[in-house]
Simulated scan of single mutants.
Amino acid sequence: MNLEPMAGFLTFWAWWVAALVLAAVETVAPGAFMLWLGIAAGLTGFVTLATGLGWEGQLAVFAILAIVSVLWGRKWAKRHQGSGPSSVSRRADQLPGRAVVLVEPILHGTGRAELDDTVWLVTGPDAPAGTVMRIVRTEGATLIVEHIG
Rank of each mutant, 00 (worst) to 15 (best):
W72V: 15
G84T: 01
V47S: 02
I106M: 09
R112L: 03
V100Y: 07
G54P: 03
H108N: 13
G73E: 00
I64W: 03
W76K: 11
I64T: 10
L59T: 05
V103Y: 03
D93G: 08
H80W: 08
L53S: 01
R98Y: 13
L59S: 08
H108K: 09
R90W: 09
A63Q: 02
E104H: 02
L107F: 06
L59C: 09
I64D: 00
R98A: 10
Q58V: 14
T48L: 03
F62Y: 06
G97Q: 02
A50Y: 05
L95S: 10
V61M: 04
T110F: 10
V100R: 06
R98P: 07
W72S: 14
T51M: 07
G97I: 04
V68A: 11
D93Y: 10
R98I: 11
I106R: 10
G109Y: 03
A63R: 08
T110L: 10
S86A: 07
L71N: 13
S89W: 05
V103G: 00
G84M: 11
A77S: 06
R98W: 11
S69A: 05
I106K: 10
Q81W: 13
S89N: 06
G57K: 04
G54R: 05
T51E: 00
V47L: 03
E56Q: 11
L59M: 09
W55C: 05
Q81L: 14
P85H: 14
A66N: 04
E104D: 05
D93L: 12
D93F: 12
R112H: 02
A63N: 06
G111K: 01
V88R: 14
L71V: 15
L95F: 11
G73I: 04
K75G: 04
V100K: 05
W76M: 02
E104M: 01
A60W: 11
D93K: 09
Q58H: 12
G97Y: 02
I106A: 06
G73A: 10
A113Q: 00
E104F: 00
V68I: 13
G57E: 02
P96C: 09
G82T: 02
V100E: 09
L71H: 15
Q58K: 11
V47Y: 06
D93V: 08
E56T: 11
S83I: 10
A77K: 13
V47R: 07
R79Q: 15
A99D: 15
I64V: 14
A66I: 08
A99H: 15
F62L: 08
G111T: 06
L102D: 02
L65K: 12
A66S: 13
V61D: 01
Q94C: 01
S86K: 09
E104I: 02
L59K: 04
V70N: 10
T48A: 01
V101W: 13
V47M: 02
R90G: 06
G84C: 02
L107S: 10
G82V: 03
P96W: 01
W76V: 03
L107D: 13
E56D: 12
W76Y: 07
L49M: 07
